[in-house]
């Protein structure tokens, strides 16, 4: 048996090849008659004002930060979860304390008003 990640790598290649092939066939078969109005940005028939790459709401950024904390912490929890049944009972409590600290962080963000969509 070879390294399974080679299989995943091949899967990535094939998974990209199929949609690329579909787009290529469509590009080959479809008509090509571009004009300025057809290619203009769609905004319900009204001409675009200003740049589309606007400043976005800072609230999204806050949510992303909270997410980042949780995502990193859950990665640490995976090994704990796999080995749980082979570990002594003490390890369960250690894991629970870890999760409680994590939840304390969530409560802190909550009380600070980070989770409000203002």
């Amino acid at each position: 048996m070879q390294n399974p990640w080679i299989y995943i790598g091949l899967f990535v290649l094939v998974g990209m090849f199929i949609p690329i092939a579909a787009i290529a066939i469509a590009a080959f078969l479809g008509p090509k008659k571009p004009n300025a109005i057809k290619q203009s940005t769609y905004e319900c028939g009204i001409e675009t004002v200003g740049d589309s790459w606007i400043q976005f709401k800072a609230q999204y950024y806050i949510f992303a930060l909270v997410f980042l904390v949780f995502d990193v912490e859950t990665v640490f929890l995976f090994p704990w979860a796999v080995a749980l049944n082979k570990l002594p009972l003490f390890a369960v409590f250690e894991g629970i304390i870890f999760i409680l600290i994590l939840l304390a962080g969530l409560v802190y963000a909550w009380k600070k008003g980070m989770l409000e969509w203002a």
Binding site: G15, M16, P19, I20, I23, G30, S40, T41, S52
Partner: peptide
Amino acid sequence: KLLIKEDITPVGADVILFNLAPIFSMM
């Protein structure tokens, strides 16, 4: 029908990312 539709790229689009996005979505 989808294959014989004209493929429109809007003005000012980032062409590379614009074409990569559906590929990544499927992948």
